[in-house]
Design a protein around this nucleic acid. Structure first.
Length: 280
DNA sequence: CACCCCACCTGCGTGC
DNA sequence: TGCACGCAGGTGGGGT
C-alpha cells in the first residue's frame, strides 16, 4: 500500500503527537508478521524510553529513541499506524504501543507483510543499508541516475521500482512519473538521455510533493494516522485506469505486466522510442 | 552481475 | 449461493 508519500503523510501525522513522549508498554498479538522482533525485545528496548525523533527512509519509519535505540516500522502492502484507540476495526491489529498520556499507537496489517523491528544501542538497523537515495536529496541527481542505468537493459519502470537505487517509489508513483515524463515504461533504462533523466527526476519530485500535499493515495485502503483517506487518487492519470481515456490526449490507457506487476500507461503520450543508433 | 519469478498473506470482485 | 480464480500499494531469497 504505502509508498513514499503515504509513509511521509503518516510520519507528519505522528511526529507532533509522539516525539518527546516515552513508550510505556508494547503489546503484541500472536500472528506472525513478515519480520518482527520478539515481544520481549520490543518491551525490553522500548519501555520507558523517550522518542527523540521520527524520521523516514524510503518506505521505512525510523523511530529514534534515547540511548541509541532504533525502532523500524515498514507497512508492507496493507499496514496502518493508527493513533488513539481504534474504535471501528479492531481486526488485524498486531502491535499496540502505549505512550505517556494514555496515547496508543496501533499497528494494523491485514496481509502481514509489514515489519516491526527494534535495534539496541550500537546495532545498526540493517534494513536501512539496502535503502537507496532519497528522491528529494541532493545526492539524487540526473547524472547519478544516468550512471546507475548505464548499460542496463531492464525497463525504466522496473528501474524506478528498485528501492536500492531511488528510494520510496512503488507501483502507483512509478506509473504516474513515467506518464508525466512522457516515457514508455518498457524503455531500457540505459537508453535514456541525460535530458530524459532530468525530466524523470523533476517529475518524480513534483508528483511526490503533490501526493504528500494531497494526503497520499487511497486506492483501496490507505489511511493516515488519524484514520483519514488521501486525495491523490482523484488526480491519477494512468494508474488503475486501463481502458479509460487519457486525460491529456483521449487515447485508451493500456495495461501491461512488467516483472510481475501491472503497469499502466498512455500509448500516445508515452510512445516507444525507435531503437538508438548504439544498438546498430 | 543483472534480472525475473515467486513466496509471503488476506480480502475482494468477477464469472461460471 | 458457492466456488475458483485473479488481483492488490512491498520486499527479498533463490534461480536463470
Amino acid at each position: 500500500m504505502p509508498e513514499l508519500p503515504e509513509v511521509e503523510v503518516i510520519r507528519r501525522g505522528l511526529a507532533p503527537r509522539l516525539v518527546g513522549r516515552r513508550f510505556l508498554a508494547v503489546r503484541m498479538g500472536s500472528r506472525r508478521l513478515r519480520q518482527a522482533s520478539s515481544p520481549e525485545d520490543l518491551s525490553r528496548w522500548l519501555q520507558g524510553r523517550l522518542l527523540k525523533h521520527l524520521r523516514r527512509r524510503g518506505k521505512y519509519l525510523v523511530f529514534l529513541l534515547e540511548g541509541g535505540v532504533t525502532l523500524l516500522i515498514h507497512l508492507g502492502m496493507t499496514g496502518r499506524l493508527l493513533l488513539g484507540a481504534p474504535i471501528r476495526e479492531k481486526d488485524h491489529i498486531h502491535v499496540v504501543f502505549t505512550l505517556e498520556g494514555g496515547l496508543t499507537l496501533a499497528f494494523q496489517d491485514v496481509r502481514r507483510f509489514g515489519q516491526v523491528l527494534v535495534f539496541p544501542p550500537g546495532r545498526a538497523p540493517t534494513p536501512l543499508q539496502q535503502v537507496g537515495r532519497e528522491p528529494f536529496s541532493r545526492r539524487a541527481t540526473a547524472a547519478w541516475l544516468a550512471e546507475q542505468a548505464r548499460g542496463r537493459c531492464r525497463p525504466i519502470k522496473n528501474f524506478l521500482l528498485d528501492g536500492r537505487l531511488l528510494a520510496g517509489l512503488g507501483n502507483i508513483y512509478a506509473c504516474e512519473i513515467l506518464f508525466a515524463a512522457g516515457l514508455h515504461p518498457a524503455t531500457p533504462a540505459g537508453e535514456l538521455s541525460l535530458e530524459e533523466w532530468e525530466r524523470v527526476l523533476k517529475e518524480t519530485r513534483r508528483i511526490l510533493r503533490r501526493a504528500i500535499r494531497l494526503g497520499g493515495t487511497t486506492v483501496n485502503d490507505f489511511l493516515n494516522s488519524q484514520g483519514e483517506t488521501g486525495l491523490f487518487q482523484t488526480v491519477l492519470n494512468v494508474y488503475g485506469r486501463a481502458g479509460e481515456p487519457c486525460r491529456r490526449c483521449g487515447a485508451v490507457i493500456a495495461r501491461l505486466v512488467q516483472a510481475g506487476r501491472a503497469t499502466f500507461f498512455c500509448p500516445r503520450c508515452q510512445p516507444l522510442k525507435p531503437l538508438s543508433r548504439s544498438t546498430f
